[in-house]
Simulated scan of single mutants.
Amino acid sequence: MVDDKPSLPDSSHVRTLDAGALRALAHPIRVQIYDILSQYGPQTASSLAEMTGESSGSTSYHLRALAKHDLIREVEGRGTARERWWERPVGGVSFPNPEAARTPAGRAASQVVMSEFLGRRHSQLMRFVGTSLDDELDAWAQHSLIATSSLRLTADQLAEVSKRVQAVIDELVDEYRVRDEDVPDDARTVSLRADVFPLPLEGN
């Protein structure tokens, strides 16, 4: 699974997190901070405290832990000694790591990260569903897409479908990615998500 690429200059680089980075990220608050930086761009410990409900001391601690493993970095030329700005590096991130999966600790860390990440995405989706019906004329609701389909595929066909879906997503991300200063005033952060996975054999 590869997570979102931040809205920064084009890059096709995808980093596979090693065991140390996975363990550093395997904390609910850190996943939340990491995801906020992915979705909303650079933040300070204070702004992250407001968005997460944590204290600025807590967010500062978690930011340092993430930075230690190059999961995030300080924004060059922005901020002061008292107010530092942090950002996600350019490029996607792959959470599954075959080497990390060989150890119980690595598997546990991967599961925590993916569960927290997907749980946050699901909560955002359900929040949208719960509020989009309030105004049926809302353009954002009208132009959003929530769709699901079922196919019968071999493992090789599944690999091909996943590859083609990812290519479409990469094309759209590259086409609509702009620098912060060029973002239109009426733009909002939009989650572009695709789930392609086999269902249980027993149909449960």
Results as ranks from 00 to 15, higher is better:
residue 2 V to F: 00
residue 5 K to N: 02
residue 6 P to Y: 01
residue 11 S to T: 14
residue 12 S to G: 10
residue 14 V to W: 00
residue 20 G to T: 08
residue 22 L to W: 02
residue 25 L to P: 02
residue 26 A to R: 02
residue 26 A to F: 06
residue 27 H to Y: 01
residue 35 D to W: 00
residue 36 I to S: 01
residue 38 S to E: 02
residue 40 Y to R: 04
residue 49 A to E: 03
residue 50 E to M: 05
residue 53 G to P: 03
residue 54 E to L: 09
residue 56 S to P: 13
residue 59 T to I: 07
residue 60 S to R: 14
residue 64 R to T: 11
residue 65 A to N: 06
residue 68 K to M: 09
residue 73 R to P: 02
residue 79 G to L: 12
residue 80 T to H: 05
residue 81 A to M: 14
residue 82 R to Y: 13
residue 85 W to A: 10
residue 90 V to G: 06
residue 91 G to N: 05
residue 93 V to S: 05
residue 96 P to F: 08
residue 96 P to M: 12
residue 102 R to T: 12
residue 106 G to K: 01
residue 107 R to G: 13
residue 113 V to P: 09
residue 115 S to H: 13
residue 115 S to G: 13
residue 116 E to R: 05
residue 116 E to V: 01
residue 118 L to N: 13
residue 123 S to E: 15
residue 127 R to W: 01
residue 132 S to G: 03
residue 134 D to F: 07
residue 135 D to K: 04
residue 138 D to A: 04
residue 139 A to I: 08
residue 139 A to N: 01
residue 140 W to R: 10
residue 143 H to W: 03
residue 149 S to Q: 14
residue 151 L to C: 09
residue 154 T to I: 12
residue 156 D to S: 13
residue 157 Q to N: 14
residue 167 A to I: 04
residue 168 V to K: 12
residue 170 D to I: 04
residue 173 V to F: 00
residue 177 R to Y: 01
residue 180 D to F: 03
residue 187 A to F: 07
residue 188 R to K: 11
residue 193 R to H: 11
residue 199 L to V: 12
residue 203 G to Q: 13
